[in-house]
Every structure is written in structure tokens, then in C-alpha cells.
Amino acid sequence: MNTNQHTDVDDVLWSAIGDPMRRRMLDILLTDGAATATSLGERLPVTRQAVAKHLVVLDRAGLVHAISAGREKQFRVDQAQLARAVAQLADVTAAWDSRLLRIKRIAESIQRSKDAGKRSNTSPKPNKPNKSDKPNKSDKPNKSDKPTKGTLQ
């Protein structure tokens, strides 16, 4: 598979965002708007030094920016870079959603033709329901349970 120019950048981005502690830091920064390594360290079960290291990784991935204010650097989330990361996730996820919808359609159409074949093969009267196979087809409990439900979000 071809790798494009952005691959290295994106790998940095995703390894940055792949770490649970760094995601917690992003969550705090998104909620608070800005924070210093010290204030993040106070809210997380890691040392200020560990927080500083994580901030370097996030900064290198472009996910946070430092603003010098007072004695200690303040960090903010780069919304555009974060949106870009989330959009990539959404693209790959959407590809799977469409594949799974197709799997569902194909499997259900095979099942329907199997059921139809079974009825005409095993029973001369097609109206007679096959006992074990489909106990309550006629009073299907959940009408709202339509094919695409639950796969779209």
C-alpha cells in the first residue's frame, strides 16, 4: 500500500493520541481551556515531570500549543489538529460501517432464499410454518428494529 507524505506526521499524531494519560490531559485542557504542567500534575496521578514529557509529545504532534504567560507555560488544545485526528478516525470507521451493512444485506438475502428453499423442499405445503426454524415469524416482537438500526452512529 502506498504511504503518502503525511504518514510520518499522522503516525506521530496517532501515537500521541493513543496514550490514555495523554487523552486525559487533552480532556482536561478541552474542559479548562488552558493549563500548566503543574496544574495538570495536580489533577492527575503522575508527577509534574511525567506531565511535562507528555506535553512535549502532544506539542510535537501539534495537538497542543504553549503560550508563555507568567512564570510557567500555559498549554492549549489545537482544535484544528484535534478535529483532523477525529476526522481520520471517522473515515476508517465509516468504511467499516458500509462493509458491515453490505454483510448484513448479503447474509439476510441468503437466509431468505434458504428459508424459501427449505419450505418448498421439506414441506409440500409452503404455508405450513417450519416448526423449529422460525417459531414466531408472524408476530415479530420489535417492528422498529429495522435493518440499518444501530449501525449508523
Partner: peptide, 10 residues
């Protein structure tokens, strides 16, 4: 990396 996954998915 997600870029690879995205390229593959597209």
C-alpha cells in the same frame, strides 16, 4: 498509524 488505515479504507 491511522494514515495507513485511512488510505486503505479510502
Amino acid at each position: 498509524g491511522w494514515a495507513e488505515a485511512k488510505a486503505a479504507a479510502e
